[in-house]
């Protein structure tokens, strides 16, 4: 009986937990299957815990960058296309160019819109490529391909040193990006509170 005690305790705690949580009031909607959740759950948080299995190197990424058509919009070397430059050192983008959401003014400052340099987390870069690229075939890149293209952009911007370095779940989670401390967290929101104290 002694060995059952922790199990019982857990059961009681679990029951209490259900009591604390909000109870369903309407019973509308159905429970998604694990596969349904997995298929849709493409958001990768900053810590990269949702990064899927897979791996790739910059060398493979360079090939895929052209093969998948990335170079068609961003320039064969990641510079000089109609879409935002992806590699540092090029001329500033021109006004009117497609820019990522919220970055429409970024063409004014060279290199500020380079994703591999601007992203505080490598997972952010991975998420962006995985969900938003390439144009018209968004979401079709396989995890290995996204890892390879991510590695390519990191290598070309000198965030990683070798084009043979393997990027995977572990390396991307651990990689300290140049802009890691270069962003301010969005403050928590409170009802009936001015958006910024002491702002006119």
């Amino acid at each position: 009986m002694a060995s059952l005690k922790p199990v019982l305790l857990t059961a009681i705690l679990a029951a209490a937990q259900i009591g604390w949580a909000q109870a369903p009031a309407y019973g509308v909607g159905r429970t998604p299957t694990a596969d349904e959740i997995k298929a849709w759950d493409i958001a990768i948080g900053p810590d990269g815990k949702e990064l899927p299995p897979g791996k790739g190197t910059a060398k493979e990424g360079a090939r895929l960058f052209l093969l998948k058509g990335c170079g068609g919009c961003h320039g064969a070397t990641g510079i000089g296309g109609r879409a935002p430059a992806l590699v540092k050192g090029g001329p500033p983008a021109v006004p009117g160019q497609a820019m990522p959401a919220g970055m429409e003014g970024m063409h004014m400052v060279p290199d500020t819109g380079i994703m591999a340099l601007r992203s505080p987390y490598a997972a952010t870069l991975w998420d962006y490529i995985s969900r938003g690229m390439p144009l018209n075939r968004e979401g079709t890149l396989k995890p290995d391909e996204v890892y390879a293209i991510t590695a390519f952009l990191l290598y070309k911007n000198e965030v990683i040193k070798s084009e043979d370095e393997v990027m995977d779940q572990d390396t991307l989670r651990k990689l300290v990006m140049p802009n890691r401390k270069g962003y301010a967290e969005i403050p928590d929101w409170k009802r009936n509170t001015p958006r910024l104290a002491n702002y006119p």
Binding site: A101, G102, E185, L196
Partner: peptide, 29 residues
């Protein structure tokens, strides 16, 4: 439902070094 700011696709554009600018970008005065 998550336990942190996720810095995903749309959030990425809001990255700024200044917490005050970030607060002003979130909400309209």
């Amino acid at each position: 439902v998550v336990d942190q700011f996720y810095m995903t696709y749309n959030d990425y554009g809001h990255i700024t070094t200044d917490a005050r600018a970030a607060a002003l970008a979130n909400q309209v005065g």
